[in-house]
């Protein structure tokens, strides 16, 4: 990797596997030879609250959190959560979003409205140069477990970064329990396939 720093922000909903995905990303960064820091807040996340995790790769990383407006890649495991962190994206950054909605309580109760995909797209486009939509949850459901969506997203992201597949797979196998290694491997490969086949649509934005 030639770049001086890579700042990634993952955003999702508690129970989606956001923290596992960020753990994998952090280890991949270490394997690339970067100094790595990763930050998130546990505690309330298990109960369906919003979860965000910062992963920073760089020659020397000080702060565990990325500065607002400096994120290179925003990985959204859930659409509304991706939209929520738009202001952390650097101008010209890249967003990759799992096309999946989890309605927050106010939307369930009918007191707030979940933004449309177009609205989220427009919001992200105020910052992002490229926005990739990935049907991660759909693919994960086909694999029999929708919580694999995060790893599907990572498969696509590895393609975006141009990393070889076998650079990531050993990390994933090391981090997930042995009995889930096969399904996670399958999810990663499925995500990668999405990327390679160009199934995910890139909506190029005005930047």
């Amino acid at each position: 990797m030639a770049r001086g720093k890579v700042d990634i922000l993952l955003a999702g909903v508690g129970g989606q596997g956001t923290i596992l995905a960020s753990d994998i990303l952090a280890e991949v960064g270490l394997q690339h030879g970067y100094d790595v820091k990763k930050a998130e807040v546990h505690g309330m996340s298990q109960r369906g609250g919003a979860v965000e995790s910062h992963v920073r790769w760089g020659e020397r990383v000080y702060s565990p959190q990325v500065e607002a407006g400096q994120v290179d890649y925003l990985l959204g495991l859930e659409m509304l959560e991706a939209a929520r962190w738009t202001n952390y994206l650097a101008v010209g950054g890249v967003a990759m979003v799992n096309r999946h909605r989890v309605a927050p309580p106010s939307v369930n109760l009918g007191t707030a409205v979940y933004p449309s995909e177009e609205e989220i797209q427009q919001r992200l486009a105020r910052r992002a140069s490229r926005i990739w939509w990935v049907d991660g949850t759909t693919v994960a459901r086909q694999l029999g477990n929708q919580t694999l969506a995060g790893v599907v997203l990572l498969g696509a992201f590895s393609g975006l970064l141009g990393d070889p597949e076998d650079f990531w797979l050993p990390v994933i196998e090391r981090l997930v329990p042995a009995k889930f290694a096969e399904s996670n491997r399958a999810a990663f490969s499925a995500g990668r396939k999405l990327w390679m086949e160009g199934v995910s649509q890139c909506a190029t934005c005005v930047s």
Partner: peptide, 11 residues
């Protein structure tokens, strides 16, 4: 970057 979004408190 846009209007306020619905919050997502833990439940």
């Amino acid at each position: 970057v846009g209007p306020p979004l619905p919050a997502r408190p833990p439940m």
